[in-house]
Each structure stands twice: as structure tokens, then as C-alpha cells.
Design a protein around this nucleic acid. Structure first.
Length: 674
DNA sequence: GTAGAACAGTTTTTT
DNA sequence: ACTGTTCTAC
């Protein structure tokens, strides 16, 4: 896309004045470019960069945007660039910074630590046990579900009953238990000086509601620009309203057709109702796609036309000609894998780097078979979405130790860290942490006689807390190296795949070099975790090429020359679990649309007719699938439909190692009785 | 109180 | 496959 030339729609958005502005930007219509120009326009018009707040979905998106602004302004080294001076990041990241700066004015100590999803779950789990909720006659929801419910209530600003009725009907019998659990949870977070994701937003809103502090924070900014507005929730909308009460200086950009985060409380209504909330608002629609070719756009337009409520807009493309998208019906998952791998390699032959190609899927495990095959064929790939680096047990262990040093009152971290010692379980951990909480420091541990099994490791832990628990602690890299040497033997003793894990730990230690202190490192890893192990290992080598595998959610905002959407069977897209209500089904449709609209030139949709149910222990029961309902005949008309020629299908892949053969013999034997 | 084995149930997607 | 729960042996 030309970054120096704006079309009339884009120009209108860029040059719009101070009144609230909603830019409805269809997929590939040059949204980032338009935003960058608008920021540059503001700066050129006299707005100081440090008085601009840029809220994006990922910090890297903000950084990229500001880098482009610098390019447009040609600020060489004359002065500090916009990218170093403006405020940019995610709502959660910006909330953290503002709360550390101003939180004290509303009684929030600046030393808080931040709980990620896993930590929040752990805390809920402990409290659930304390309240003896598991003892109830009917099975209590698992901790992850509890957190989902809690989060939904907070983010959607909705009472528990409503949330349970609408989204978690099977938990309705536990409403009372959940209420008491959530009350305890809120109290405990205050005592332990921890904030969870939702708290960051809620406390920022609280800060803005405070007459004194609110005015101070408001006065920091002249312009607030928000990207991916369709995926903001009620609390985020409140924050914006409190930052810019009249809406003046507020720009929001989004595409209601790409709203895919309602499961975490995002409200499409935010973008649909923006003009009503700010009557002075101007709405600008960007409709020229610079991404997809006309044939692809024809197809994606037809797909999204099935949505029930949206800003009507038909995207068009000047990129006429090109390949029509295709739907490939495969017999089984193996065939689907072969088709995708073949196409990927063909297109690489045509000169499309692997990095310009992406395989997209609804849920993380849908790529398992493909990953195996890519590994077998030595085709490099990176997977985005699904389980992440920081969620691996050994990383969480190490970070728990660091977090305990940073905030001795953090029970989730403390419990996890102490239970690493053999012979120490939840009870012992609890009494040790009680002692620390009472004393306000680690001193009481000096007089503790640890359980016999922990005797070997105890002095090491004691040395750690003595050295790093003090206010004046050593430089961060040294701290991490100390913690790592303490933890490594434990890791070796308790997990398999030890070398891989030890490598991860070393990588983590390297990351720490880039941060000034523990709090910043921990917040960063919690709020913006590295998306793959390779990401953490550092910037990719220049000529490194790898196929992208991604959940559709994680592919949001990206584009590729060639896109393969796999497992496009009804039940996967839409997910079986989401066909209950109209809004859920609509969101699945938008999700499918997001997947298809990532493509520039080539688009392949595949699905296996026959596929195996998950508990594939012995025989492997299979069921027959149908193409997603989002591709009815009138939509399919925009696609070519094929099934792979039998001859082109490779013979079944060889087993990875010789030892696998015995497994397949056993499987065959079992099939006799299945 | 802890650790490990045996057993039962199971709702994607992520800041 | 994974997580959570319960039971048993230290």
C-alpha cells in the first residue's frame, strides 16, 4: 500500500477536526496508515506528542504506528521522536503506568503486582477450598470457569445472575457459592496487594472518577486514539468517556464486522452506539481495500453479508483479476494436511515466502496434525495462539519465585514457590506465608525449622530472600541468575524434557537484561507475554523463513499473501458450543470473516469430511462433518470447489521413529475389538 | 501433611 | 489429553 497517498475517505478521517470521530475501517482499508497520518497531522498542527494517548490491542501495534508517524514527520535526530514521547500501548499497559504514577491518590500502593490468568485461577482455587465450596452436593464449577464468570461480570458490568443465565446456565445452582467466592476474592486481592487484568481497568476508571486525581490524569492528554474499538468492553468505554467527557479529541477506529472478543466482555455495542453516545461524532467509512484482490473480496463480502446487524459497507478493490478462492473438500485430516502442505510448497516455488503464508484455525489443537507433518518434512513454522511460553509450568515456577521476592504478600506466587520444595505442601506454605505477612518481611523464616525433606533446599531459599527481599537488591540480571541456579535442580527433578526447559529458563534470564527492575519485567511478561518461544529467544534472524500457524483470534490485524483456513467444518466454525444464541453465532461468523479477510492473493478453505473424535485412545471413533454453514450455496458461488485428486495424495506419512511401529500394531489389534 | 496412584469429567478464543 | 478429586501409604 502506498503510504504517502491518501484516498478521499482516508483524507477526511485524517483532517477531521477536534470533534469525536469514528472511523469504520473495513479489513485491509489502510487503517494503520490512516491513523499514523492522523497522529502526524495532530503533531503538525501543534499537539505535543507526549499529550497524545494511543490505545491499541498490542503494544507492538502502538510502537509500529508511532514509528510510521516518525517517518511521516521526518523527525530525524533533530528532536526526540514521537515514538519515544507519545503514550502508547494496550489499555492494560497504560492503566498499569497510570496507576503506578497516580494510584496512591486513591489509596492504591504503587508496589502492586499483577496476576495473570493462571495466578487469578490459583487464588480462586485456594479460596474455593477455604470456603469448602467443593463440598457442595453438586459439582462446583472449575477454577477457570469461575474466573471466566467473574471476569464477565466485571467487564460487562452485569450482575452475576444475568451472566449465569445468559452465558453459564449450568452454573446457576452455584450462584450463592460464587457470590461468596467472589467477595472473598476481591478482599484477598486488596490484602495481598495484587491486581488482576480486570482490576487494572476497573481501578483506572476509579482513578478517573476521583475528583482530584481524575482531573490530573485527564489533563495529561489532548488527544486519545483507540484502535480495534469493536473489541473494547464496557469498562474501557467508561474509561474513554472519563478521559474525554465531551468526546472532543477522541478518535476511535474499528470494524464491527471484525468484533470477535465478546467472550471476554467486549461489547460490539460500543462501536454501534458511538454516534449515540457522542452526538457531535462524525462517522467516516473506509471502503477501499488495498489488501484483497477483487475475487477474494467478492467472496468475503458475501460471507459477512450474512451478519444480522452491522454498519452497512461494501468493500471494493482496485486489484482486479487474480485467482478465485477455493474450497477443498478432503476425505480425512491426513488429506487436509497434505493439501495444505502441497499448496504451501507450490506457492513458495512461485516466490511467496513461507512468512507470507498463514494457516488459520478456530482452536489451538486444530493444527496438531499439521505441526507433526511440518516437523516430519522439516518445514519451519511458528505457531501463535494457544498455550504460551509463560504458561509453561517451569516458567511459572521461576516467575513465582521472582514475584514472591517482589511482593511477599502475593499468596498465589508464594504458595507456588514454596510448594517447589519437597515436603512442603499447601499447609506448610500457608503458615510460612502467614508469618511473612504478619512480619512484613522474610525475617521470621530464619527461625523456621523446615520439613525434613526440604532441609537440603531450604538454606538456598533463605539465602535468596535475604539477598533479594531487601529493599536494596542486586541488578536484575544477577537476581534472575541467582533464582535460576536455585530453581534448576528442582526443575530437573520434577519434569521431563529437561533440556528444553533449561533452555527456556536461560532464555528468560536473557530477557531480563532489557528491563530496569523486577516490577517492570513482571508486568511486561504478564501484560504482553511473548507469543512463542522463538519470539522470546530474540528478534528473528533476517533471512529466517517460517510458515505462520495461528488461531484466528491471534491473526487479527495481520495480512498474508496466501491464507489457508483449515477445519472449516460445521461444529468447528461455528464452534458447536456457540450455536446456542444468535449473538454467539454472529460472532462465529465474524470470526470466519476475520480469517478469510487476512488474505491478499490466495485463499484456500479446507475441511475434512471424516475426522477423529478427540479421545483417540485406542480405535479412534470418527464422525462425518459438513462444510461450515457460513458457506451456503449463494456464497460458495464465489469460490472454486474441488477435492484433491486421489493420485496427488501422498502415501501415509512414515512414523516419526521406529518405536512408533509397535504402537500402530497395538492399535490394529485393538481395532479388532473396537 | 505430603506425595502419588487411581479414577472421573470435560465448553474454544486472550488482555 | 488434561485437570481435578479422592484414596492410600508414608
Amino acid at each position: 500500500m502506498k503510504s504517502d497517498v491518501l484516498n478521499p475517505e482516508q483524507r477526511a478521517a485524517v483532517e477531521h477536526g477536534d470533534d469525536p470521530l469514528l472511523i469504520v475501517a473495513g479489513a485491509g482499508t489502510g487503517k494503520t496508515n490512516t491513523l499514523a497520518h492522523r497522529v502526524a497531522h495532530l503533531i503538525a498542527g501543534g499537539t505535543r506528542p507526549e499529550r497524545i494517548l494511543l490505545l491499541t490491542f498490542a503494544r507492538r501495534a502502538a510502537a509500529e504506528l508511532l514509528r510510521r508517524v516518525d517517518g511521516l514527520l521526518c523527525v530525524g535526530n533533530r528532536e526526540r521522536s514521537a515514538s519515544t514521547r507519545a503514550w502508547g500501548g494496550t489499555f492494560h499497559g497504560v492503566a498499569t503506568r497510570l496507576l503506578r504514577l497516580h494510584g496512591q491518590q486513591i489509596g492504591l500502593a504503587p508496589g502492586f503486582t499483577i496476576h495473570d490468568r493462571g495466578d487469578s485461577e490459583d487464588l480462586l482455587d485456594v479460596l474455593r477450598a477455604e470456603l469448602e465450596l467443593s463440598r457442595a452436593d453438586r459439582r462446583f464449577p472449575r477454577k477457570g470457569t469461575c474466573l471466566d464468570i467473574y471476569s464477565r461480570c466485571v467487564n460487562a458490568q452485569e450482575p452475576l445472575e444475568g451472566v449465569l443465565d445468559r452465558a453459564f446456565p449450568w452454573c446457576v445452582p452455584h450462584a450463592e457459592g460464587l457470590k461468596s467466592l467472589f467477595r472473598r476474592y476481591t478482599e484477598e486481592k486488596a490484602v495481598q496487594l495484587v491486581l488482576d487484568y480486570d482490576d487494572l481497568l476497573a481501578f483506572l476508571r476509579g482513578l478517573l472518577d476521583d475528583p482530584g486525581a481524575g482531573a490530573v490524569v485527564r489533563a495529561r492528554f489532548d488527544a486519545v486514539l483507540v484502535d480495534e474499538y469493536q473489541d473494547t468492553n464496557a469498562v474501557q468505554a467508561d474509561i474513554l468517556e472519563r478521559l474525554r467527557p465531551s468526546g472532543r479529541g477522541l478518535t476511535v477506529v474499528g470494524d464491527d464486522a471484525q468484533a470477535i472478543y465478546s467472550f471476554r466482555g467486549a461489547a460490539v455495542r460500543n462501536i454501534l452506539d458511538f454516534p449515540a453516545r457522542f452526538p457531535a461524532a462524525r462517522v467516516v467509512k473506509l471502503t477501499q481495500s488495498y489488501r484483497a484482490t477483487a475475487p477474494l473480496l467478492e467472496a468475503t463480502n458475501r460471507v459477512i453479508a450474512q451478519a444480522s446487524e452491522r454498519y452497512a459497507k461494501e468493500l471494493w478493490s482496485a486489484r482486479v483479476g487474480g485467482e478465485r478462492p477455493e474450497i477443498v473438500t478432503c476425505l480425512g485430516e491426513e488429506e487436509q494436511t497434505q493439501v495444505v502442505v502441497e499448496r504451501v510448497l507450490e506457492r513458495r516455488e512461485q516466490g511467496i515466502d513461507l512468512r507470507r503464508q498463514a494457516v488459520l484455525f478456530r482452536t489451538s489443537h486444530h493444527s496438531a496434525a499439521l505441526e507433526l507433518e511440518l516437523g516430519r518434512r522439516n518445514i519451519p513454522f511458528r505457531k501463535y495462539g494457544g498455550l504460551r511460553f509463560v504458561e509453561a509450568a517451569h516458567i511459572r515456577d521461576l516467575l513465582a519465585l521472582v514475584r514472591l521476592l517482589e511482593n511477599p504478600r502475593d499468596r498465589a506466587a508464594g504458595t507456588r514457590a514454596l510448594c517447589l520444595l519437597p515436603g512442603v505442601g499447601p499447609r506448610t506454605a500457608r503458615s510460612l506465608l502467614d508469618a511473612v505477612a504478619d512480619a512484613g518481611g522474610f525475617e521470621p523464616w530464619c527461625n523456621v525449622r523446615p520439613p525434613a525433606a526440604a532441609a537440603v533446599l531450604w538454606p538456598g531459599l533463605l539465602a535468596l530472600v535475604e539477598e533479594m527481599g531487601a529493599p536494596r537488591n542486586p541488578p536484575l540480571p544477577l537476581q534472575l541468575s541467582r533464582v535460576r541456579s536455585f530453581y534448576e535442580p528442582i526443575c530437573e527433578a520434577s519434569y521431563d524434557h529437561v533440556d528444553a526447559r533449561l533452555r527456556d529458563l536461560a532464555a528468560l534470564e536473557q530477557v531480563a537484561v532489557g528491563f530496569p527492575d523486577r516490577a517492570t519485567l513482571l508486568a511486561e511478561l504478564t501484560l504482553e507475554p511473548p507469543r512463542s518461544t522463538q519470539d522470546l529467544a530474540g528478534p528473528p534472524v533476517l533471512d529466517e523463513d517460517y510458515l505462520v500457524l495461528s488461531t484466528i483470534h491471534s491473526a487479527k490485524g495481520l495480512e498474508f499473501d496466501a491464507v489457508y483456513v483449515i477445519h472449516a467444518a460445521d461444529g468447528n466454525i461455528p464452534s458447536d458450543l456457540a450455536v446456542g444464541r444468535r449473538e454467539e453465532l454472529d460472532e462465529e461468523l465474524r470470526l470466519f470473516y476475520v480469517a478469510l479477510s487476512r488474505a491478499r492473493d490466495h485463499l484456500t478453505v479446507t475441511f475434512p469430511l471424516r475426522w477423529y473424535e478427540r479421545p483417540a485412545g485406542g480405535g479412534g471413533r470418527h464422525s462425518y462433518a459438513q462444510l461450515t454453514r457460513f458457506l451456503p450455496p449463494e456464497v460458495r458461488a464465489a469460490f472454486d470447489e474441488r477435492s484433491p485428486a486421489p493420485a496427488s495424495v501422498d502415501p501415509a506419512p512414515l512414523p516419526l521413529e521406529g518405536s512408533n511401529a509397535s504402537a500402530s500394531v497395538r492399535r490394529r489389534l485393538q481395532e479388532l475389538f473396537g
